[in-house]
């Protein structure tokens, strides 16, 4: 009988190879698939194109794959938290395609939804629109942006069932739902893996059809990037 359930990240990453495009969920260090990223590092795959809103920090998240120079190209909206990134980019080792955050989210959504491209007002008249088609609707200019898909998509969810239905928690949702739809093979790592029928259908954020592989995280740090508190 077929199953989507895998024992761990290493098993769930079978088939990853050099020169592939990987979509990675998360915003900052929030809602990133920690176990998948570590397994990618350990797999040793090279020349990766990585689509993710951010690039982690020097010693955590996607920063781990920058340190080992496994990433050839990043597509992100903001990479300001990572000194390794800046160094590799400035020296020309690393390619970078900046994409506005909302455009990146929509490109992933479009990719997963079978929409090859769409027009957006974001970035018209800026570097981002250079070389792209611009078209006027109702007197306003819009730029054509293309959908994005990947060979693998890696997402992090709070709960998942054995069919791959996912529920995210608070702002750890961020890019994960769109990324889940845009991978040829989508791997979900979940904090709680439950039986089919245990998730309330009305509460499912990502229907299981988008998820090909799922595993329960073996260890997770859930690091906080900026711990800010107030006095009671």
């Amino acid at each position: 009988m077929s199953t989507k359930v895998y024992a761990n990240a290493k098993e769930a990453l079978k088939g990853v190879a050099d020169n592939m495009t990987y979509l990675v969920g998360g915003f900052g260090l929030c809602g990133i698939p920690e176990n998948c990223i570590e397994a990618l590092r350990d797999s040793g795959v090279k020349n990766i194109t990585c689509v993710s809103n951010n690039a982690g920090v020097d010693d955590f998240g996607l920063g781990l794959l920058l340190k080992t120079r496994q990433i050839k190209k990043m597509m992100s909206s903001y990479v300001g938290e990572n000194a390794t990134f800046e160094k590799q980019f400035m020296s020309g080792e690393l390619e970078l395609e900046f994409c506005p955050q909302g455009t990146l989210a929509e490109r992933l959504r479009a990719g997963g939804a079978g929409i090859p491209a769409f027009y957006t007002p974001t970035g018209v008249g800026t570097k981002i629109a250079e070389g792209k088609e611009v078209r006027q609707f109702d007197g306003r200019d819009f730029v054509l942006e293309k959908g994005i898909t990947g060979d693998f998509a890696f997402v992090k969810a709070w709960k998942g069932d054995k069919f791959g239905n996912l529920v995210f928690r608070k702002t750890a949702r961020n890019f994960n739902p769109m990324i889940a739809t845009a991978g040829k093979i989508t791997v979900a790592e979940v904090e709680e893996l439950v039986e089919i029928g245990e998730l309330e259908p009305d509460q499912v954020h990502t229907p299981g059809v988008y998820v090909q592989r799922i595993f329960k995280v073996t260890n997770q740090e859930k690091r906080i990037e900026q711990r800010t508190v107030r006095k009671g």
Binding site: G28, A105, R109, R173, N174, M178, Q226
Partner: peptide, 24 residues
């Protein structure tokens, strides 16, 4: 809560009536 941050990656709280949603 590591799962509850703002756009500056700082830990925050959600008020009554708040909602969470995807980046799209």
């Amino acid at each position: 809560d590591a799962d509850l941050i703002n756009a500056g990656k700082q830990t925050v709280t959600a008020l009554k009536g708040a909602s969470f949603f995807s980046s799209a």
